[in-house]
């Protein structure tokens, strides 16, 4: 919401340095994913990947008030979450290239990207897989007497898994400090929410589990950060979980094998015109947080960071083939 001077929440609430860093990380997410896409085309990345281009405000604004002690669980579309939570793009590229210096030592790849040290408990190959885990992390915080919160990222498609419903119910009855963040991009793979989900908005599901549910424009950085500010405060105060639904859109196909037969060109272009990064940048300039030159400098820095990251990853060593079974169990126990 705007104040009397027409300043949105984020501009009032965060310092210019924080806002500039947020813009930087949003650019970094975009350039990272473009770099990953390009590396994939060149055959440097194996398998598949799910790009979040177009959803950067949702990832970044959600993580604004999280510290490294706060946890997130992420999903298959998790590159943005990982960078927003503070990961280093060099180690991310290294993981995508299957290198030992990668966050998962080359064992996980894009779909399992994680950075446990910055509180990212991992992307997930299983739709809905992270939901109960987030509730468990919130249980730990509560029992161990910490003020940490857990943010659980998931998609609109995941809200039809049993794990979603069981997790929200448990979190509510145990009043746990977890925020369920649904990134509703309108589709689970090819299936629209209208065809898969009995309610028009995922946030309506919150009523069934007696927690607050809010739907926001997920491409509006400020709106997302405000919704999370409220939900995080509630969680830290011990008042229990919330559900926040960020309405957004993925510009790219679901994965590398999507032929886009279920969306129109017009729909995709209409959403591309609502670029969350361009919008946030314009907002920061309009409110005097930075000028065009300052924004351009931030954008170029992201390009340089990505280039450096790719170089680091390329130069890194691959895992030793004799270590296929390493990390299956704790080393000391063997």
């Amino acid at each position: 919401m705007m104040d009397a001077d027409n300043r949105p929440f984020a501009i009032r609430h965060y310092s210019p340095a924080q806002l500039r860093e947020a813009l930087k990380r949003m650019y970094l997410i975009r350039r990272f994913e473009e770099g990953a896409e390009d590396s994939y085309t060149r055959g440097m990345i194996h398998g598949t990947m799910h790009l979040s281009i177009g959803q950067e405000a949702s990832a970044m604004a959600t993580c604004m008030e999280l510290t490294d002690d706060d946890k997130i669980t992420s999903n298959h579309r998790g590159h943005g979450h990982c960078i927003a939570k503070g990961a280093d793009v060099g180690r991310m590229f290294a993981e995508f290239f299957g290198k030992e210096t990668g966050y998962c030592h080359g064992r996980g790849g894009s779909m399992h990207i994680a950075d446990v040290k910055t509180g990212n408990l991992g992307a997930n190959g299983i739709v809905g897989g992270g939901l109960p885990i987030a509730v468990g992390a919130a249980l730990s915080a509560k029992r161990l007497g910490k003020s940490d919160v857990t943010v659980c990222f998931f998609g609109d498609g995941a809200n039809n898994e049993g794990a979603f419903h069981e997790s929200l119910n448990i979190a509510s009855v145990w009043k746990l400090p977890v925020i369920f963040v649904c990134e509703n991009n309108g589709y689970g793979m090819s299936t629209s929410t209208a065809r898969s989900t009995a309610v028009p908005h995922i946030a309506q599901r919150a009523a069934a589990y007696a927690m607050p549910g809010t739907t926001v424009d997920g491409n509006d950085f400020s709106a997302v950060s405000e919704a999370l500010h409220i939900a995080i405060a509630r969680a830290r105060a011990g008042d229990g979980p919330s559900l926040v639904e960020n309405l957004t859109y993925r510009w790219r196909g679901h994965s590398k094998s999507d032929r886009n037969r279920y969306r129109t060109k017009e729909e995709i272009e209409a959403w591309m015109a609502k670029d969350p990064i361009a919008r946030f940048r314009a907002e920061l300039i309009a409110h005097g947080v930075l000028d065009e030159a300052g924004a351009d400098a931030i954008a170029s820095q992201a390009v340089a960071d990505v280039q450096k990251g790719i170089e680091f990853a390329k130069a890194s060593a691959a895992p030793d083939l004799s270590e296929v079974t390493r990390y299956v169990y704790a080393e000391a126990a063997l």
Binding site: H46, G47, R107, P319, V324
Partner: peptide
């Protein structure tokens, strides 16, 4: 298969 989950790295995957 090796006594491990299937690894991501293509050479490890093949070796497994």
């Amino acid at each position: 298969a090796a006594d491990a989950p299937v690894p991501y790295n293509p050479d490890l995957e093949r070796a497994s």
